[in-house]
């Protein structure tokens, strides 16, 4: 497809999406929905193609390359992985059958457990340890690196009070009433400040991102045909 045709389609699709600004009038809302449906449909279709070409085909190619010697160790491993993946995939299709859905649940359990284990290991080595390192390392020369010290203290306070903020455990008093200490309340209040500040920053930067994308599209429309 020529570049001009692609540009024209992009132009029309952008206008269709922007028609949402005009509200829910029958015609314009149809245009918006049509653009969104096209986008979602094409994304789903491309995902299917990409999965076939990028995930399934390589396994088939591996097996095909070594099909002359099934006893070859590498080939056995490839075939085993492929057959296992295929079996798991087929079992997922049994979900609608109530009497066999436990098979699907079992496969999902494996996926979830493996995914959770991977995530936990990654979170430890990639997030928690570096974060702990960042909040516990004090500069050798505090006077020379005062900014770093302040940052470290802020990160420590923010992390700890933020974690404390999401703590809902109650303390049982002598009169069997539930309550919390004033210190805990103060720490949670500090955590609330950090959380709200963080959310505010995220909201502001998200708006900035959206504005950037909006500007790019408006610029594209303005330049169209020039």
């Amino acid at each position: 497809m020529s570049e001009s045709a692609i540009t024209l389609i992009s132009f029309v699709a952008t206008l269709m999406v922007f028609s949402y600004l005009l509200g829910d009038l029958p015609l314009v809302s149809s245009l918006y929905r049509t653009a969104v449906y096209i986008f979602i449909g094409m994304s789903a279709a491309f995902t299917l193609v990409a999965t076939y070409e990028g995930v399934i085909l390589p396994y088939l190619a591996d097996i095909q390359d070594a099909n002359t010697s099934w006893t070859a160790l590498g080939n056995q491993a490839d075939v085993t992985i492929f057959v296992t993946a295929l079996l798991f995939g087929l079992l997922l299709l049994l979900k609608p059958i109530a009497s066999l859905s436990w098979l699907t649940n079992s496969i999902l359990a494996v996926l979830i457990v493996v995914g959770a284990a991977t995530a936990v290991v990654g979170a430890l080595t990639g997030t928690l340890f570096p974060l702990l390192h960042a909040i516990t390392v004090v500069p050798e020369d505090i006077t020379a690196d005062f900014t770093a010290l302040v940052n470290t203290v802020l990160i420590f306070l923010g992390t700890m009070s933020g974690l404390f903020y999401f703590q809902f455990q109650l303390r049982q008093g002598d009169d069997d009433s539930a309550g919390r200490s004033r210190v805990g309340y103060a720490v949670r209040s500090l955590g609330k400040i950090f959380v709200v500040t963080t959310l505010g920053a995220i909201y502001a930067t998200t708006m900035l991102s959206m504005l950037t994308i909006f500007v790019e599209r408006v610029g594209f429309l303005m330049r169209f045909g020039v």
Partner: peptide, 16 residues
Amino acid sequence: TGYAAQPLSQPYVDGS
């Protein structure tokens, strides 16, 4: 990253 992902991405850069 873009602006939206900056606040939550920055700690990974600063901490590693």
